[in-house]
């Protein structure tokens, strides 16, 4: 599983950071960093919650 961010859409709202602080982080400038781009399968529910709650639908999960 790979976390894919659509950087044209991301507005740094930080919803993903609230849901999964171990996977996502905002830097001092408010820009999003993905800490672990390929989290383990045990993280799927958390990543899916972050994907669903992104207010601009900038997060997707690639299974390729």
């Amino acid at each position: 599983m790979r976390i894919v961010i659509d950087w044209d859409r991301c507005i740094g709202a930080g919803m993903c950071v609230g849901i999964a602080p171990h996977l996502f982080q905002l830097d001092e400038k408010g820009k999003l960093n993905v800490l672990i781009e390929e989290p383990g399968e045990d993280q799927r529910a958390t990543v899916e919650a972050a994907e669903a709650c992104c207010p601009v639908e900038a997060i997707s999960i690639s299974n390729g």
């Binding site: 709202a13 930080g14 950071v17 609230g18 849901i19 602080p21 905002l26 830097d27 001092e28 408010g30």
Partner: peptide
């Protein structure tokens, strides 16, 4: 300030 706010969710 989402950087401060969002981690408070926990």
């Amino acid at each position: 300030d989402p950087m401060t706010l969002m981690p408070l969710r926990a």
